[in-house]
Amino acid sequence: MFDVRETSLKGCLRILPRVRADERGVFIKTFHIEAFQKLGLPTSFAEEYFSVSQKNVLRGLHFQMPPMDHEKMVCCAQGEVMDAVVDLRRSSPTYGAYALFHLKSSEGTMLYIPKGMAHGFYTLSDTALMLYQVTSVYDPDCDAGIRWDSAGIPWEVGAPILSARDQKFAALADFVSPFV
């Protein structure tokens, strides 16, 4: 049902669903409780939301601090994005490292992002619809991020469209991680 692949960041997984395509388009199952349980993935999500972004928008790099840190499942439901995950777990051999993923709605690829990792993406298509499921409720006091251009990610963009919030985040080098 799902082809699950490890990434260069321990615990961060690429999940490739079966894509059924015909003359009408595609049909993709993004969740199956028994399959997720068998894979050790979360099956209970506290919140689910989506964002719509125009071309050249960069969102990130976001995460929630403890005690409201969360596991996250993301996928691109329309369009395509360059997705990035950065390991912020101090004891991890890949602390500070990033992994990049090209997510396209036609492929349905999902990412499982464990606690202690920052997430962001850059919109490649005219618009992109991103879906998120998280295992804890959003808490503005625990909302955090690191600056998009401070982790060495080759975004291949000079001047992305950023929110005021994302522009104010500290650089990775200045971030004191609470994640073990």
Score class of each variant (00 low, 15 high):
Leu58His: 04
Thr30Ser: 04
Phe36Thr: 15
Phe45Trp: 04
His32Leu: 05
Phe27Cys: 03
Tyr49Trp: 11
Lys29Pro: 00
Phe31Asn: 06
Glu23Ser: 13
Val52Lys: 04
Lys29Gly: 05
Leu58Ala: 11
Glu23Lys: 14
Gln54His: 14
Phe27Met: 15
His32Pro: 00
Gln54Ser: 14
Arg59Pro: 11
Gly40Thr: 05
Ser51Asn: 10
Glu23Phe: 03
Leu39Gln: 12
Ile33Asp: 05
Leu61His: 01
Asn56Ile: 05
Glu23Cys: 10
Ile33Asn: 00
Phe27Gln: 11
Ile33Pro: 00
Glu34Lys: 12
Phe36His: 09
Ile28Leu: 07
Phe50Asp: 01
Thr43Val: 13
Ser53Lys: 03
Asn56Thr: 11
Ala35Phe: 02
Lys55Ala: 15
Ile28Pro: 00
Gln37Thr: 08
Gly25Ala: 14
Ser44Cys: 03
Arg24Val: 09
Phe63Ser: 02
Val26Gly: 07
Gly25Asp: 06
Gln54Asp: 11
Glu34Gln: 00
Lys55Ser: 05
Glu47Met: 12
His32Gln: 13
Glu23Gly: 08
His32Ala: 06
Lys38Arg: 15
Ser53Glu: 01
Glu34Cys: 00
Asp22Ser: 12
Thr43Met: 06
Gly60Leu: 14
Leu39Trp: 12
His32Met: 06
Lys38Trp: 09
Gly40Lys: 00
Ala46Met: 02
Ile28Gly: 05
Ser51Leu: 04
Glu23Val: 15
Tyr49Ser: 03
Glu47Cys: 05
Leu39Val: 05
Asn56Ala: 12
Asn56Lys: 13
Gly60Met: 14
Ile28Ser: 12
Gly60Asn: 08
Phe63Ala: 00
Val26Asp: 08
Ala35Ser: 14
Glu34Tyr: 07
Ser44Phe: 11
Glu23Ala: 15
Ala46Phe: 05
Leu39Cys: 01
Lys38Cys: 12
Asn56Trp: 12
Leu41His: 01
Phe45Asn: 11
Thr30Ile: 10
Ile28Met: 10
Phe45Ala: 11
Tyr49Gln: 01
Phe36Tyr: 15
Pro42Ala: 14
Glu47Gln: 15
Thr30Gly: 01
Val52Leu: 06
His32Ile: 06
Leu41Gln: 13
Val57Leu: 10
